[in-house]
Simulated assay, not measured.
Amino acid sequence: MSPPRLILLTAFAMIPLAANSWLCRAALRDTAIDAASFTSIRLISGALMLWLLVWLTGKARAGAGNWPSAFALFGYAALFSFAYLSLTAATGALLLFGAVQVTMIGLGLRGGERLDSVQIGGVALAFGGLVGLLMPGLSAPPLGGALMMIGAGMAWGVYSVRGKGAGDPIRVTAGNFLLAVPVTALLSLFTLANVSVDALGAGYAVASGALTSALGYALWYRVLPMLRSTSAATVQLSVPVIVAIGGVALLGEPITLRLVLASAAVLGGIALVILERDRIRGRR
C-alpha cells in the first residue's frame, strides 16, 4: 500500500473510534434510551455485524472468543455507557484513553517490562493529568461518572492485552462480542424497571455497535499490520483530540482550560512512554 493511502486510511480509522463517544453521549443526553439498553443494543448489533464480516471473508482462520475477554468487553461497554450519562464526550474520551494506556503499561510491568527514568516521568505526567482533571472545582467532571469511565478504560486495557496473539482479530472480536450478548441481556433484565428505548436512541446504539465498533475495528485491524507498533500507539493519541473537536462541533460541548491542560499532560506523558520505548528497542 502506498504511503499516502496508508496515511489516509490510518486517519480515517481514528474517526470510528472517536465516534463511539459522540454517539453514546448524544443518545444518553438527547434521546430517551437508558444506558443498559444502549449497551445491549450496541453489543448485539456489533456481534451481528462482526459475524457477517467473518462469513463474508469465507476463510477459515484461527481464533475464538473466550469468557474472560467477553466479561472485560462487557465491563468496558457497560461502564462506558453509564459514565456518559454525566460526562461530556471529550472528558470521557480522555479518561477512557488515559486509563487504557496506564492499565496496559501496568500489565506490562507486571509481565516483566521495565521503565527507564524518561518513561517513569511520562507515566507520572499522565497520572498527574488525570488527577488534576478530577480535583474538586467548578469544572471538575462528576466523580461517579469519572470513576466509571476509568473502570471502562481499565477493562478495555485488560481486553486489549488479552487479545494480543489470540488469532485472527476479527474472528476473535466477533466471538467475544457474541459471548458478551447473554451477559448484557442479564444487565437489561436486572434494569427492566428502568428500560426506555426510542427509535433515535436505538439508532444511535446500532450505529455504535455495527458501524463505529464492528466496522471501525475491522478497518483498524486492516491498517494495524502495516504500521510500526510505535506509530500505531502514537496515532491513537489523536482520538481524544478528535472527540473534543467533534464534541464542540456536533454536540455543542464546552472545552475548559482544565480539560486542555489535563489532555496535554495525559497525552504528552503517554507519548513519552511510547517514543522512549521505541528508542530503547532501536538500540538493541
Results as ranks from 00 to 15, higher is better:
P4Y: 12
P4F: 12
I7K: 15
I15A: 09
P16K: 08
L17C: 08
L17S: 10
A19V: 09
N20R: 09
W22A: 08
A27H: 13
R29T: 10
A32P: 14
A32I: 15
S40W: 01
I41N: 01
R42L: 09
I44E: 00
M49K: 07
W55H: 07
W55D: 01
T57S: 14
K59M: 11
G65S: 05
F74Q: 06
Y76P: 10
L79S: 13
L79R: 10
F80T: 03
F82R: 01
L85S: 09
L87A: 02
T88S: 13
T88K: 11
G98I: 15
A99K: 12
V102P: 06
T103C: 14
M104T: 08
I105E: 11
G106H: 09
L107I: 12
G108V: 11
R114N: 05
G122N: 07
G122V: 09
V123E: 02
L125Y: 11
A126T: 08
A126F: 13
L134W: 11
L138D: 04
L147R: 12
M149A: 03
M149F: 08
G157I: 12
V158M: 14
V161T: 11
G163N: 13
G165E: 05
A166V: 12
A166K: 11
D168A: 05
D168S: 05
R171N: 03
T173A: 03
A174M: 10
A174P: 06
L192T: 00
D198K: 14
A199P: 00
L200Q: 06
G201I: 12
G201D: 07
G201K: 07
A202L: 02
A202C: 02
G203R: 03
G203P: 02
Y204H: 04
Y204C: 02
S208I: 03
T212Y: 06
W220Q: 09
R222F: 13
L224A: 14
S231P: 06
A232W: 14
A233L: 15
V241M: 03
I242W: 04
G247E: 06
L250D: 00
L251K: 03
L251P: 01
G252K: 04
E253I: 06
E253P: 04
L257M: 06
L257T: 07
L259D: 02
L259W: 11
S263F: 11
A264L: 15
V266C: 10
L267V: 09
L267K: 14
L267N: 08
G269D: 13
R279H: 00
R281N: 07
R281H: 07
R281A: 08
R281K: 15
R284I: 12
